[in-house]
Every structure is written in C-alpha cells, then in structure tokens.
Nucleic acid binder design. Structure first.
Length: 796
DNA sequence: AACTTTGGCAGGCAGT
DNA sequence: ACTGCCTGCCAA
C-alpha cells in the first residue's frame, strides 16, 4: 500500500498493481470502539444491540467491539460527559482515526512511494505571510525525481489563466509520483499550492499524495549528528547543503524573484535554474544522509504513512503498538483530548556531580545498551501489566499524626509480580505489549545489524540493512518518551517514572560497585559511568562482573521476570577535561576496542563550542584552548599569554560581521513572551532577540516561531542592552568590551579555571573602561584589511 | 496544527 | 554581589 485516506465514510487505498502501476480501492470506514466484556451486563448489551446508532456488536477475545453508524455519534457517546462516561463504562480506542483503525485491523504493508522533490518560486512583492495565504502568484515550479530527472514550469504571463495552466502542468507531472518532498514544505510550499489552487478555482485531490517536509525530518534526524555550533546557525536549505554537500550560496536572491521573472528572457531562465537547483539539493542531501530512507523504514515497521505526520514519535509508536496489542487481545483507553490538569511531572534520570573537575588522565567509560528499552523489558513495564492497586509501603497520610515518627510499614513484593524502583508494581504472569514490542524491535535491530556487518560498507545492501537496524532502534528508543507524553494515548507518568527511577538505581549501584573495588567513580549521566584509577583489563573484568553477578542479584531483589540489562565497555579517554555536569571534552585512547589514531577528533559535550547560540569567536577560542589542553603540554603561563592575545584581538582589532553576530531562535509567537510589571509600573523588557524580532515585525518582516534572529549588541553598558540587526552592522557599531567580558572569555575561562584553579584567570576579564560619558568605541590599532593574514602568534 | 521525556547550564533582566 | 525568573539550547 502506498497511501490511504478517509473520504466520505470510505477508506480509499492507493496500492501498487502487479505491473508497478497505481490503483485505488475502497473499503468502508469503521467507526469503532471497544468495551471490556467484564464492564458490560447482559442488560447493557441488549440495549446496545437495539440502539439504531450501533451497526454491529461483536465479541473479540475479552472485548466487545462496537461499530457505529457514523463518526459523530461515536464521538458523542464516548467523549467526556457522553453516554458511557455517565454510565461509568470506560471505552477503548473510540477516538482512533478511521485510517489508523483500518491499518490496525488489516494486514497492511507500507510500500516505498515514488518520490518527487519540489520547489516553488512565488511573487516576492508581497510579504511572506500573504504569500502563504495564497495571495502571491506562483512564478515557477520544479520537480526532481530520485534519479535526478528534472522538470520545471514557468509562468507565461501575469494572468490567472496563465497561472492555472502552469499549475495544471504541475499536477499532471506530479501524477507520476506518490510522495512530495519540499524543504520547509509544511510551512510554505504545500500551503501555497493548496491555497493558490483554491483561489484559482482548481479542484485537486491533495490526499492523493504523501506530503513530507524535508526540513522537519532533517532537523529531527540530524539532532545528534552535528558537530560544532557552526552547523547550528541556520536550517535554511543553503546553509544545510553547504554543511552537508559543501555547495556554496545560491546566486539568485529569492526576495527578488519577481524582478527576475518580470525581466523575462535570460533573467527568467535564471530564476527557473535556481528553482531546479534548489530542488536538486534536497535529492543530494538525501543521497548523503539517507534520512528519508530511514524515515521510510520507521514507517514500514510501524504501519504509518511516510508523510510529515509520520515523523512524530507519538504517531509511529502508536501505529506499532496498536497492531501488536490487537494481536494480543489488548486495547487502550480512549483519548479525545487531554486536560492540562492531568499532566503530572515525573522524575527523570540521575546525573552525578563530577567527583572532580579539571584534567583527568585515562578515564574509562561504560554504558548500558538501550537502557530504557531494556528496563521496560526487564520489569515488564506496560499499561496493562501495571498494578496501581498494589502498594509496597504504607502511605504517609494514612496514619494518625502521633505515629508519624515511626517508619512506614513495608510490604513484600507479591508473588507473580516485580517492583520498579519508584515502587510501581507490575505483574510477571504474562509479557506486556510494550515489553513484547521492544523485544521484537531489539531482536530485529540486532538481526539487521549483523546483516549490515556481513555486507561491504557503502554498498546498497549494506545501506539497506543499516537503515533497517537504525529504524528499529529509533522506534524502540521512542517508546519511553511516548509513555511520558500527555499527547500520547499511552501517557502514564507513573510508568514513565518507573523506567527512569529504575535507571537511576542501576547507575548508582554500578558506580558504587566500582568504588567498592577502589576505582574512582568520576561521573555518570543517565546510562553512562566514567571511572578513573583503573586499568583497561580490570575495567573490562568489572563490566563482565556487573553483567554476570551484580545485575542478576539486584534484579532478583526486585523480582524481575527476566534480565535484559547489559553494560558495555564503550571507550577509554586518554585525557579529559571535566568542567561540570553535562560539560566536558576528551581525547580518545580507544573506542569500542579500536585504538584512536592521530587524526581522531576529541569528544566535546555541552561546551559553548557545541552551541549554536554562542559567538563564533567564543567557539573558536574555546576550541583552541581545549585542543591544546588535550593534545599538547603547555604550561599555565602559555595559556595566560594566549588569553592575552585573544583579549587584545577582541578589544582592539577589526572584526567582521560573522565574528560579532549572535543568533537565537524565536520559540513561540511573539505576543506570548512574558513581560512582568516592574515596580515603576512599566513593563520589563524581553530578551534582546525578542525585542529585536518585535521591532522587525513592526517594520513588515514576518517573524514566526522557529526563525533565528541575528543580532549585534551595540551597547551593553545600559540596561536593557541595546541591540541592532545584523543588517545594520557597519564594522564599528558593536560593544567589544561586552563581547569579551560576557561572551568570548567566560566559556574559555571556565575551562581554564577547571584545569588551573584559582583567581588568576579573573584578572583578564574586566575590559570596559571606567564610565566617563558616552564612550567612543576603541579604534582598531591594526587594520586587518591592509595587513592581510594573522598577525599574532598563537592564532590558528 | 501538532506536539517524545527530564536534567542541566548559562546569560539577561529586575530586584535586594 | 547575590537571588529568582525567563529563555535558549544542549546531554541523555
């Protein structure tokens, strides 16, 4: 099956014919809910059978399956305050979308769709918001397929008739494809197409295609892949293709598309070439990253349509679990919406305070393989195995206050059950749907990982196996998060917490066991232990012992039905700089047994170097110092001198735009940023980038959530500080003192202070001259433009 | 229009 | 110089 849609009480399925063509088939949509058989009396059943809104009532295992006449009555009867709610009979899966219902009930195999990458150019004379609303003409379109075949159309003249013709050609060409991919398509191209056709009175069945936003997918998949903050500056297609493909900037400014089109002739052709080139970039990015292929595998595993919605974990995890649950006679509670009051925060992972900071030699790291999935399997954690009625200790509120000094009574774990470390109890009499799902996923993952390893790297078979094994892993790792999400039908904070708190316990026990042996427990975060003062052989033996002795014994205490917990010896750092929780840098001695080579890159976590919201100069400075600390043996004076050079560079030398610009994202609609009332009855100012965004918005820019604001701090000696747009940079209108004191030096200062403790480093911080009055910015002593290359020793 | 989680650090604003 | 709060972004 390629696609399916709910149309007028039918599920219309598009599927491949034997010859590779496409055919449509209709099935009646099922408006269905389940009731637990034990919840309904014979009397209830009789009434339901006679009710005209119910078309069928069928016994399925321990459930009654009700099929309703239409979607509306189903909802009305099952929603909060509806018939069943009032009768106190819980309904199950009543809210399920008919397409998901169809996928769950039938043996569906999701096929790989034929892909079309598309891009549009629109009339640039109107603001973008109006264009998205369909008020600008589409000037040209282009389609590129997976094989690199390109086709484009361009508007003949500035009339509705011409545009209709242009779009008719587009839809005609698109008929050869099943999936449409555009960079930022959800926010722009798809919306524009829909509205433009609607305005021009064209009837197009948009449900015929799978619409996939490449940007959304890329952002999700690339989260863990990017190295430095440099790569996080922008998600525009040009920036991403630059980072991934090394392709430079486009020669045509999209803001001038109208001028290009209106000029006609060669200019107009240039616009079309630009459009095609951009479209092709997506194909090349996919060739390099394979993210769309990976998404396809996730969707195939989960019986989810490979469109933008399919990217969401709640969606694909639901697809996988519902199908498996139905096989196993399990159904899930209806969930129409959620109440804000029903959201319970739950405890997360354990992060150990580093035992010491600074330079540390020979640190060994072990981590738990797929920790949360293995905990779910080990404790049999699932909505239907959870026994909230079984308590392991007396609750504090249940006894009179004069007894409150006595310890609370504890009860043993009952036979046939196990207990997570938040004392949530789960039955062990049968395997839960969630553990079963994870067992299968992890098994398939390892099967495909082995197949991958049997192939020559880089070949098609290798790639295919690699995608599959990654796909299974993604689905497995998403399950925990989905249990903890109020948007999901599996939301159950107590269960999510059973997972995290049990993880805390395992991690703490592991570090304690290492310390018992005289090793140094240095640091740990969620599923990893950093251990020093131990040899490679001893550490390897320790990991084996944990797996053979420690965990089986611990899990026995909690009465777990099986043991899926596995610790692995991941790597050894030759030298690491520990700065604080979630902040460190390290050079490798070996990784999974493979020795590091001269060109092995350091591992850097959490430091400003990794962040996209720091100054480029700050990243460069920090990276240089961190590299020297890890790979060279300078003394403290040499670092002091280096700091002095950077200080001078920031305070006195010519700096270019990219050295002084900051970039932060707008995360929500601008009017939702909080402003509190100050004591003088005026409103407090918002963060600098928000204030600037609001200002730009007033001037006609269209700033929306997700967009990055580039700004320069012009004067931080006043509060709130004065910022300007990067467009207004003139080479001198920025605050050097602020840059050094607040943005460039502190990140490196913290690293140096960790390695060489003491007050020494602070003496290089202060830079701003004492306040006289409106201070003139320092003049550069040396003009880099005239002198050319690097002037001072120590720069790289 | 939809939405995987918690833990953690750092900077700016406003107040003491 | 300190705190609380808001915000952004990263680790896991």
């Amino acid at each position: 099956m390629v696609n399916a849609a709910w149309v007028n009480d039918d599920i219309v399925v598009l599927h491949r014919t034997g010859e590779g063509g496409l055919a449509a088939k209709k099935f009646p949509a099922q408006y269905t809910c389940y009731l637990r058989a034990s919840d309904v009396s014979n009397e209830d059943l009789r009434k339901l059978r006679d009710w005209k809104h119910i078309k069928a009532l069928k016994r399925e295992g321990s459930w009654w399956r009700l099929t309703w006449a239409n979607w509306k009555v189903l909802r009305k009867a099952c929603e909060k305050g509806g018939l069943f709610d009032r009768a106190d009979i819980p309904t199950f899966e009543a809210d399920l979308h008919p397409v998901r219902r169809f996928f769950t009930d039938n043996p569906i195999v999701i096929a790989r769709p034929k892909r079309a990458y598309i891009d549009l150019e629109t009339d640039s004379r109107k603001p973008i918001a109006q264009t998205i609303d369909g008020r600008s003409r589409i000037l040209c379109w282009s389609i590129v397929n997976e094989h690199g075949e390109k086709i484009a159309g361009v508007l003949e003249e500035d009339t509705d008739e011409a545009e209709r013709e242009l779009l008719e050609d587009f839809w005609y060409e698109l008929k050869s494809y099943e999936q449409v991919i555009a960079w930022g398509g959800d926010d722009f191209d798809f919306e524009v197409l829909k509205r433009r056709c609607w305005r021009l009175g064209m009837e197009v069945n948009l449900k015929r295609w799978l619409w996939l936003d490449h940007l959304t997918l890329f952002r999700r998949m690339n989260m863990s892949a990017s190295e430095s903050g440099d790569e996080k500056q922008s998600m525009a297609l040009d920036s991403v293709s630059h980072a991934i493909l090394g392709v430079g900037k486009a020669p045509v400014d999209a803001a001038l598309s109208w001028e290009y089109w209106a000029a006609g002739g060669a200019k107009r052709e240039e616009l079309v070439r630009y459009c095609v080139r951009d479209t092709n970039l997506m194909r090349l990015i996919e060739e390099k990253t394979g993210f769309i292929d990976l998404h396809q595998k996730v969707c195939e595993v989960c019986t989810t349509l490979p469109d933008s919605r399919g990217v969401n974990p709640t969606n694909f995890v639901e697809g996988y679990l519902l199908k498996l649950a139905r096989e196993r006679d399990v159904h899930f509670k209806s969930k129409f919406s959620f109440d804000r009051n029903d959201i319970d925060q739950f405890e997360g992972a354990y992060v150990m305070e580093p035992a010491r900071t600074g330079l540390i030699e020979n640190v060994h790291v072990c981590d738990f393989a797929s920790l949360y999935p293995s905990i779910i399997i080990t404790w049999n954690i699932s909505p239907e195995t959870y026994r909230p009625d079984i308590k392991l200790r007396e609750s504090a509120g249940s006894r009179p206050s004069y007894l409150s000094h006595l310890p609370l009574k504890e009860y043993p774990i009952p036979e046939g059950h196990c207990a997570a470390l938040n004392d949530a109890v789960f039955t062990t009499e049968f395997t839960g749907v969630l553990p079963e799902a994870l067992i299968r996923l992890l098994e398939l993952r390892s099967v495909w990982k082995e197949k991958k390893n049997a192939e020559a790297p880089g070949t098609d078979k290798w790639k295919e196996a690699d995608r599959r094994s990654s796909g299974y892993k993604i689905v497995a790792n998403s399950c925990y998060g989905v249990m903890g999400s109020p948007f999901s039908r599996f939301y159950e904070p107590a269960i999510a917490e059973a997972v995290t708190v049990s993880g805390q316990w395992l991690l703490k026990k592991t570090i304690a066991a290492a310390e018992d042996r005289g090793y140094e427990g240095l640091y740990g975060d969620t599923d990893s232990c950093f251990i020093a003062n131990v040899s490679r052989e001893a550490f390897s033996a320790f990991v084996d012992w944990c797996n053979k002795e420690l965990y089986p014994n611990l899990l026995n205490e909690r009465r777990c039905m099986r043991n899926a917990i596995k610790l692995s010896y991941e790597k050894q750092f030759r030298r690491m700089i520990m700065v604080g929780k979630k902040r460190y840098a390290a050079s490798f001695a070996h990784y999974e047994g493979k020795d590091a080579t001269a060109d092995s890159k350091p591992e850097i976590k959490g430091l400003e170097y990794k962040r996209g919201d720091t100054l480029r100069l700050a990243r460069q400075f920090q990276h240089q110092v961190v590299s020297k600390l890890l790979y060279e043996d300078l003394d403290q004076e040499q670092y002091t001198a280096l700091v002095g050079q950077w200080r001078q560079r920031i305070l006195e030398h010519e700096l270019e735009l990219e050295d002084v610009v900051m970039s932060k994202r707008i995360s929500k609609p601008l009017d939702e940023y909080k402003q509190r009332l100050k004591k003088d009855n005026t409103l407090s100012s918002r963060p600098a980038h928000v204030e600037l965004a609001i200002e730009l918005n007033k001037k006609g820019a269209d700033i929306r959530p997700g967009q990055r604001i580039r700004y320069i701090v012009a004067d931080a000696s006043v509060s709130p500080m004065k910022v300007i747009s990067d467009k207004d940079f003139d080479g001198n209108n920025f605050d050097r003192f602020y840059m050094w004191e607040n943005l460039v030096y502190p990140p490196t200062q913290r690293v140096l202070e960790a390695v060489y403790p003491g007050k020494h480093w602070n003496s290089l911080l202060k830079a701003r001259p004492r306040k006289t009055r409106a201070r003139a910015p320092a003049k550069p002593k040396v003009d880099l433009r005239k002198n050319g290359s690097v002037l001072l020793p120590g720069f790289e």
